[in-house]
Each structure stands twice: as structure tokens, then as C-alpha cells.
Design a protein around this nucleic acid. Structure first.
Lengths: 214, 214
DNA sequence: GACAGTTACGAACGTTCGTACTATTTTAGC
DNA sequence: GCTAAAATAGTACGAACGTTCGTAACTGTC
């Protein structure tokens, strides 16, 4: 699955450059708004030259999705693994998730969110890929919640799936508000929602916080 | 603003029929996926004959959006006005809002939600219309919350905007989950989230026990 | 520096896009 | 039932769509 990464050949370099441009366009216009012609113009390549790197438009769209997922993993998931388990990590995950739209450096919104909307009624490989990504993201959230339960930060009867569901809601509402209404207070609202959600499921104060060695 | 509605002329009838079809298509493929050609096929009309009813594709899209808003008003907003103010009305509003995607009879998802995603980076009249609709919906939610505060059902320090924000999140997450993952328990999750959100801001128990739901 | 392999281009394919203009048919008031 | 108006169809347009193909220009290796 991991590329050898010995030395990137010319083709791989251009392919990567193309995908960067494609990512930028797709973030603004959606995966369905990404077209070979406009992408060729954006990269300064010919349509045919660009096209040769991907067998079809659909393959291009899938590649864009995969690249977005990789970036997301690097920018959001990876860093939080270094943070101590439980509530701190859960909160870090949420914050990075929330800020991903901005920190991604992409001009438009989150591709995963827009793709989820675009393809919820368009069966095919792209929809399947979107669903896989969604499932993976969900699983990450749930696991973070579960760890917080194990660490004694959240009550044992907390339902990880329910929390993951509500966290997704906060992020979606935040994405919507920020991009459409330009609401400056959006981030504060999201954090407030997070804090109250967590507070509702927080374990009663312990005699002494159990800090795990290692 | 209200049509004379004396007797619908032939053209108005056709226009309405076209818009119904357009609504169905746009709910599945999005407003950007709605094209004159496919709509002409779906209605059995010629492209030019259909086109004459709207001066441009953009006007068609705007008309679709407006019709969707009208339907939404009739199916979600109007009915809840008959329900007693406060929590009962707020809950009814939320439930109808939640079920709107299904009860609308449209084959695809909610047009407002998909349009919000499609046009958050496409400036123009459509985006403006989407924003207006979003603002109106927000205002309705906030007002319902405010009434619940006035009725003494929610604590006075409750922030209506914050609640409206979180309600939007629940609906969005629900829409996402249901349409993408086909999660059967989505509705239950949404209601749980709603209940806990409300419980968190509920006014302290009154002398008189709160009556059973409805 | 020659050679094979990779990479990019230009031109063209058939379709579909939105829209404009002109006919033809259908509706509605007399 | 006639007639003006309204509604629909027909035709054509330039542009953009994804894709194919043959060929030119590179790239890296010996």
C-alpha cells in the first residue's frame, strides 16, 4: 500500500502536482464540478496529457478523494496520537477536525463533506469510497470516546456511537455556518457545544486523577 | 407575493408540473446536476418548450429553490404553529424538520442542505437565495427556543442561537447518516441528542409535574 | 550520444450543455 | 368558430464535456 518512495519519477511528480490543483478545484466546486478541461487549464497542461495520468475522470475523482483522505490523516489524525489518551486526545481530535477546513490550505470547504452530499444519491465507486472514508472517520471518533471511557474521563454508560454522531453534527453545523453565513462566532459555538456534550457525560470527579505511566 | 390564484392558466400548470419534476431531479443530483435536457426528457417536453417557461437555467434553479422553500413551509413550519408554544412546539418543529427529507416525497435528500454545500463557494443569485433560506430557518428555530424560554420551559440564560446551531447539527448529522450509511437507528440517535440537549437547558422542575409528552 | 521508455501534445471524435431564433400548435375570449 | 395571444416544438449555434489516437518531445540508462 505504501509507495516505495525511492525517487519519484517525473510522471509521479506531475501526477501529484495535478492532484494538488484538482484538490483545490474540487474543494470549491465539488468533485462533480471538477472537469478535465478546467483542470488542464489550471495546471497549464493539455487535456490529453493530463488525462493520460488517469484512465478516466472517475479515476481522477477517486484519486482526489484518496489524496484528501491522506492529507486529512496527516493533518488531523496523526498529530493527536501523540496526545495523552482520554479527554485530552478527544478534544484535540475534535479541534483539529473542526479546523481542518481552514488548516488544509484548500480554498474551498471540506471535500469529504461536500462529496458526502454530492454522492448520497449517485451509486458507484465514488460513493463507495466516500462511505468508506465516512466509516473510518466515525470509527476514529468512537475509539477516541471509548478510550476516554477507559481512562475514566467519561461515564461507563456513555454510548460512543452517540457521541460520535453528535460530534459529527457539531462539525457539520460549523462547516455550514462558517462557509455560508460567515459567522465569526462559529468556532466558539462549536467548542461550547463540545464542552457541554462532554460535561453531560463526564465521569463524576474522582478522588485522585489516575495518570497512567507511559 | 401571493398569487392571485383565480384560475391557473395552462402555462402556470405546466410550469408547476415542470418544477415538480425539477425538484425530484435536483433532490437527487443537486441543483447543479439539474439540466434542461434531462428535465425536458423527464417531463416529455422539448428543450425549447420547457426553456420558454424560465428565461434561463439560473432562473429555473431559483424557481426550484423557491418551490422547495414553499413546500418546506407548508410541511414543516405551518403545522407546528398550531401546537402549543414552548417545548411542545419546539419538539414538533424539530421532529418535522428531521422527517422532512422523507415526508417531502422527494426521491433524494433535502435540497436546501445539498444546495448549501454546492453554493458555499459559488457566488451569485443562487447562493444568495440559499443564504436567505438558511437565515430564515435559523430564525424560526431561534424563535421557537425563545418562546420555550418565555414559557418557562427552558432556563432564562439559554442562548437561542446556540441551541439553533446545535439543532442544525443534529439534523445535518442525521441527514448524512441516514442517506449515506443507511443507519436505521439514525432517527433514534437524533431524538436522543435532542432530548439531552433540551434536558441540559431545561428549567428546574416546577411545583407542578411536567405533563407527559403530548 | 544512441536508444527505449515514458510523458506530453494536438487534433478530432460524438454528446451534451445553455440559449437564440423561427415556426407551429393550442388555448381562451369574443 | 374566429382570432389574437399564449404555449410548445423545431432547428441551429458555439462551447464544453470526456475520451481516443497518432505522434512528438522528453527522460533516464548504458
Amino acid at each position: 500500500m505504501i509507495q516505495p518512495a525511492i525517487r519519484p519519477t517525473k510522471g509521479e511528480q506531475t501526477r501529484a502536482a495535478i492532484l494538488d490543483q484538482a484538490l483545490a478545484i474540487a474543494s470549491r466546486l465539488g468533485l462533480e464540478g471538477l472537469t478535465i478541461g478546467t483542470l488542464a487549464d489550471a495546471t497549464g497542461m493539455s487535456k490529453s496529457g493530463l488525462f493520460a495520468h488517469f484512465g478516466s475522470r472517475e479515476d481522477l475523482q477517486l484519486a482526489v478523494l484518496e489524496r484528501a483522505a491522506t492529507r486529512y490523516g496527516n493533518a488531523v489524525l496523526m498529530p493527536v496520537l501523540g496526545i495523552e489518551r482520554g479527554l485530552p486526545r478527544l478534544r484535540a481530535l475534535f479541534e483539529r477536525w473542526l479546523d481542518w477546513t481552514i488548516s488544509s490550505g484548500l480554498p474551498g470547504g471540506c471535500i469529504m463533506i461536500s462529496a458526502a452530499n454530492e454522492y448520497d444519491d449517485r451509486p458507484g465507486p465514488i460513493r463507495d469510497a466516500v462511505i468508506r472514508n465516512q466509516r473510518r472517520g466515525n470509527a476514529v471518533s468512537e475509539k477516541a470516546v471509548r478510550l476516554a471511557i477507559e481512562e475514566g474521563h467519561l461515564r461507563p454508560d456513555t454510548d460512543p456511537e452517540q457521541i460520535a454522531f453528535e460530534l459529527l453534527g457539531i462539525v457539520l453545523a460549523s462547516h455550514n455556518h462558517r462557509r455560508l453565513l460567515g459567522d465569526k462566532e462559529t468556532r466558539k459555538r462549536a467548542l461550547t457545544a463540545f464542552d457541554e456534550l462532554i460535561a453531560r457525560h463526564a465521569a463524576p470527579a474522582q478522588p485522585r486523577a489516575r495518570s497512567a505511566p507511559r
